[in-house]
Design a binder for these strands. Structure first.
Lengths: 210, 210
DNA sequence: TGTACATCAGTGAACGCGCGTTCACTGATGTAC
DNA sequence: TGTACATCAGTGAACGCGCGTTCACTGATGTAC
């Protein structure tokens, strides 16, 4: 077989990880199979030993990227609840910063992959929707870690949705303006940071003013 | 020349209008020159009699689409200030509705073209940034039609930015979830509508609860 | 444990296809006299 | 006003190129005995 089983699955994961960055940076369509394989250190013919199609890779990559992101979010939410009250706020501020804006390949896919999900549809959109639900669940825990009834659960969920709307809207606009009007782009980030739902809110929300 | 001058400029505008819809619906990359010309009723060879490149068409189309959108926004803002207090709120609610979500070709380009601006860069991004500034200016008029000093002007501008963040974040996420999780998609729209900046706000903001 | 053989990840060249762009050609229009 | 001619928007075929995908081939690995 030429390549040990263990190495094969490592290589497969390398392709997914490479695609994960490339898709977030350039978009699913703009990142070609040959490019991805080259970046991952292979010739492009071998791609189809691992995946039946580019679409299948895209769907699995979206899944994989959200799995990572949800883990990161969980860490922040748990740290915030357990003695590091600034943890989540700091993470969100970093996301809504020029660094976060200019490094989409390192950041949460909720923003970057939204348009790809909308335009690609099918398995990619399904993976995005599942990932988004997972992100939502984790963020809702932050607003209410133990909702006592259905209305309370819905409220925390809506709070999480509002938070994600602001994050995605802010980062999307900041990236759209990035090169052409850097000043306005940073103003958008500043407004988004300042108006993050959860700020200036009473009891239930442990989010601190930063 | 085969075609009267007047018809030539009409044809040119037809191409731009066709591109405007197609770019908002499918994205700039996904809408090919041959497709556009066919949809506009021409063979694709003639494209280069009107535009030096697809990129030039894209930039001009972004410009043209924002010109239209800014006019629409101005109408709403003026109507709201002059005896139709629900006008803008109704417009925003329509944008953040399933109909608005499913008809990006009819809607404001601030959301649809943001990712194209970010990924295409160059002239397209420049045109987007200019259009965005114009939209911002009109929306700021709504929050404070006649700011008395610089801080007041900045405040109304930031209010407008916050409004656009919510609109773009809401519509982007709703479109990303559209087919895969319609229920969640509509929930996102509902939360965005409910939390639009300007709602539940004191004096300066004429936005009404809807 | 050693040998013979089937497997299949990776290679590198090739496939058809659609992309943005170019080009020779056309003929009604606009212009010059 | 009428005639001769240059212009150039639109046509339709073609260009090179990069895309996703296919394929014959390879050789170390995993398996069967």
């Amino acid at each position: 077989m030429g390549v040990p089983r263990q190495q094969v699955s490592r290589n497969r994961q390398t392709i997914i990880n490479t695609a994960s960055r490339a898709f977030r940076e350039r978009g699913v369509e703009a990142a070609g199979v040959a490019d991805l394989m080259k970046e991952a250190g292979f010739t492009h013919g071998g791609f189809y030993n691992h995946f039946p199609s580019k679409d299948a890779l895209a769907a699995e990559t979206v899944e994989s990227t959200f799995r990572w992101a949800v883990g990161e979010h969980r860490k922040l939410v748990e740290a915030t609840a357990n003695g590091q009250p600034e943890a989540l706020q700091a993470g969100l501020n970093a996301y809504l910063s020029p660094e976060g804006r200019d490094n989409p390949g390192d950041e949460c896919p909720t923003g970057t992959l939204a348009v790809d999900a909308a335009r690609q549809g099918g398995a990619v959109q399904a993976a995005y929707a599942k990932g988004f639900e997972d992100v939502l669940r984790v963020m809702a825990l932050h607003f209410d870690p133990d909702p006592q009834d259905e209305p309370a659960a819905e409220k925390s969920r809506d709070d999480a949705i509002a938070l994600l709307i602001t994050l995605v809207g802010g980062i999307t606009l900041a990236r759209a303006l990035g090169q052409a009007n850097p000043t306005l782009s940073e103003r958008v980030l500043a407004v988004a940071r300042k108006r993050l739902p959860g700020r200036d809110q009473p009891p239930k929300s442990p989010l601190k003013k930063g």
